[in-house]
């Protein structure tokens, strides 16, 4: 998804993993994804730059859809759609 499309998303839940490092953002994603319904979208906020690679890998493994990420001021905002 493009940044324009991503910025239009209203996630059902946002988990804040800023300040945590590996594997913090993944742990936060694991906890957060069960709090949205199938088909809904979770946003993850992270400062660890590895999250750009790790969150898609996590989503693929867990069977969710990774929608993309955008740079905010000083952190990343990443989007995952719960698929099951």
């Amino acid at each position: 998804m493009s940044v324009t499309e991503l910025s239009a998303i209203q996630p059902q839940k946002t988990v804040d993993a800023r300040g945590t490092s590996c594997p913090g953002p993944i742990l936060a994603a694991k906890k957060g994804i069960v709090e949205v319904k199938v088909g809904e979208i979770m946003a993850v906020l992270a400062t660890d730059s590895g999250t750009k690679k790790d969150l898609p890998a996590w989503a693929k493994k867990m069977g969710h859809e990774y929608l993309g990420e955008m740079e905010e001021s000083g952190y990343l905002k990443l989007f995952v759609k719960r698929m099951k």
């Binding site: 590996c22 594997p23 993944i26 742990l27 994603a29 694991k30 890998a57 996590w58 493994k61 867990m62």
Partner: peptide
Amino acid sequence: FIIANGAAAMG
């Protein structure tokens, strides 16, 4: 422990 926690987080 980082690997263990990462793997557990990946189900």
